Amino acid sequence: SIEEEIKKAEEAKEKGKTFIHGDFVATTEELLDELLKRLRKKL
């Protein structure tokens, strides 16, 4: 679910890890923020 993806992305951000969502690879905090923004729009 979208909620689960958001939670996983937030955890990755806290730990400074890379998060992959489909073909979107978030390797930096900026990219994770962008991904979180996109996911929240889908809610």
Results as ranks from 00 to 15, higher is better:
Ser1Arg: 12
Ile2Gln: 04
Ile2Ser: 04
Ile2Ala: 04
Ile2His: 02
Ile2Arg: 01
Glu3Leu: 14
Glu3Gln: 11
Glu3Cys: 15
Glu4Ala: 11
Glu4Val: 06
Ile6Thr: 02
Ile6Gly: 02
Ile6Ser: 03
Ile6Arg: 02
Lys7His: 08
Lys7Leu: 08
Lys7Met: 12
Lys7Glu: 07
Lys7Arg: 15
Lys7Asp: 03
Lys8Pro: 01
Lys8Gln: 12
Ala9Gly: 04
Ala9Thr: 03
Ala9Ile: 14
Glu10Asn: 06
Glu10Trp: 07
Ala12Trp: 05
Ala12Lys: 00
Ala12Ser: 04
Lys13His: 03
Glu14Phe: 07
Glu14Thr: 08
Glu14Met: 12
Glu14Trp: 10
Lys15Tyr: 11
Gly16Tyr: 08
Gly16Glu: 05
Gly16Val: 04
Gly16Ser: 05
Lys17Pro: 03
Lys17His: 14
Lys17Tyr: 15
Lys17Ala: 13
Lys17Val: 14
Thr18Glu: 11
Thr18Pro: 13
Phe19Met: 06
Phe19Ile: 04
Phe19Arg: 00
Phe19Asn: 03
Phe19Lys: 02
Phe19Tyr: 13
Phe19Asp: 02
Phe19Cys: 00
Phe19His: 06
Ile20Asn: 03
His21Ala: 07
His21Ile: 11
His21Phe: 13
His21Arg: 04
His21Gln: 04
Gly22Glu: 10
Gly22Pro: 04
Asp23Thr: 13
Phe24Ala: 01
Phe24Asp: 04
Val25Leu: 09
Ala26Ile: 10
Ala26Ser: 03
Ala26Glu: 02
Ala26Lys: 02
Thr27Tyr: 14
Thr28Pro: 02
Thr28His: 03
Thr28Leu: 12
Thr28Arg: 02
Glu29Met: 14
Glu29Ser: 13
Glu29Thr: 13
Glu29His: 12
Glu29Asn: 12
Glu29Tyr: 11
Glu29Asp: 10
Glu29Trp: 14
Glu30Tyr: 10
Glu30Arg: 09
Glu30Val: 06
Glu30Ala: 12
Glu30Asn: 05
Glu30Pro: 03
Leu31Gly: 03
Leu31Thr: 05
Leu31Phe: 06
Leu31His: 09
Leu32His: 01
Leu32Ala: 00
Leu32Ser: 00
Leu32Thr: 00
Asp33Met: 08
Asp33Arg: 10
Glu34Phe: 09
Glu34Arg: 07
Glu34Gln: 09
Glu34Asp: 06
Glu34Gly: 02
Leu35Thr: 00
Leu35Phe: 01
Leu36Glu: 00
Leu36Ala: 01
Leu36Pro: 00
Leu36Asp: 00
Leu36Tyr: 01
Lys37Arg: 14
Lys37Trp: 06
Arg38Ala: 14
Arg38Ser: 11
Arg38Asn: 12
Leu39Glu: 01
Leu39Met: 03
Leu39Arg: 00
Leu39Ala: 00
Leu39His: 02
Leu39Asn: 00
Leu39Tyr: 01
Arg40Met: 11
Arg40Asp: 10
Arg40Ser: 06
Lys41Gln: 13
Lys41Thr: 07
Lys42Ile: 14
Leu43Glu: 02
Leu43Asn: 03
